[in-house]
Deep mutational scan, measured.
Amino acid sequence: KLLSSIEQACDICRLKKLKCSKEKPKCAKCLKNNWECRYSPKTKRSPLTRAHLTEVESRLERLE
């Protein structure tokens, strides 16, 4: 599967780190437990900047 097509777990399953069936409108866990089942939009991760990478590398060197 391509990364862009990976389905996201519902908010509660993601928060509780449960295996989500990803069914809509309610996944199996939410249906069974009568929880409100919501699927928040995916958040875009910002790409690493060179400055951040350099900072992490220098912190790693100090720890070694």
Rank of each mutant, 00 (worst) to 15 (best):
K17D: 02
C37N: 00
P47W: 06
E57L: 00
L2K: 09
L60Q: 04
C20Q: 04
K16Q: 01
W35L: 14
E7W: 11
P47T: 02
Y39V: 08
K16F: 07
C10G: 00
K32H: 12
A51D: 06
W35P: 04
L60E: 01
L63Q: 00
K19V: 05
L18H: 15
K29L: 09
C13T: 01
D11H: 04
S4A: 14
E36S: 13
N34G: 11
L15H: 10
S21K: 00
C37W: 02
D11T: 03
A28D: 14
E23V: 12
Y39R: 07
S40W: 03
Y39W: 09
C27R: 07
S46L: 03
L31F: 14
E64V: 10
L53T: 02
E57Y: 05
W35D: 12
H52I: 02
L18F: 03
L3C: 11
L63I: 15
L3H: 08
T49Y: 06
N34W: 07
L2E: 14
E7N: 09
S5N: 08
A9E: 00
C27Q: 02
D11R: 02
R50Q: 05
T49S: 05
E61F: 11
R50V: 05
A51E: 08
K19I: 04
R50T: 04
K16S: 00
R45H: 03
S21N: 08
P47M: 05
E61L: 14
C20I: 06
C13K: 02
L48W: 06
E23G: 12
D11M: 05
P41H: 07
R14D: 03
R59D: 02
C37S: 03
K42Q: 12
S40R: 06
K24W: 15
K26R: 14
C10K: 05
K17P: 00
K26T: 08
L3T: 08
E36R: 14
R14G: 04
L18P: 07
R50M: 05
Q8Y: 08
A9C: 02
R14A: 11
E64F: 04
E36P: 13
R45E: 06
D11Y: 04
K32Y: 09
A9G: 10
K32E: 06
E55M: 14
R38A: 13
K26G: 14
C20W: 00
I12E: 12
S46G: 00
K29Y: 06
Q8D: 04
L18V: 03
P41Y: 04
C13S: 01
R59Y: 04
R50H: 00
R62D: 00
L63K: 01
K26P: 03
K42H: 10
A51Q: 12
L3F: 14
L48M: 05
K1P: 15
C30K: 01
A51M: 12
V56Y: 08
P25V: 03
R62P: 08
R45L: 04
L48K: 06
R14N: 03
Y39Q: 07
Q8V: 05
I12V: 12
A28I: 09
E36A: 13
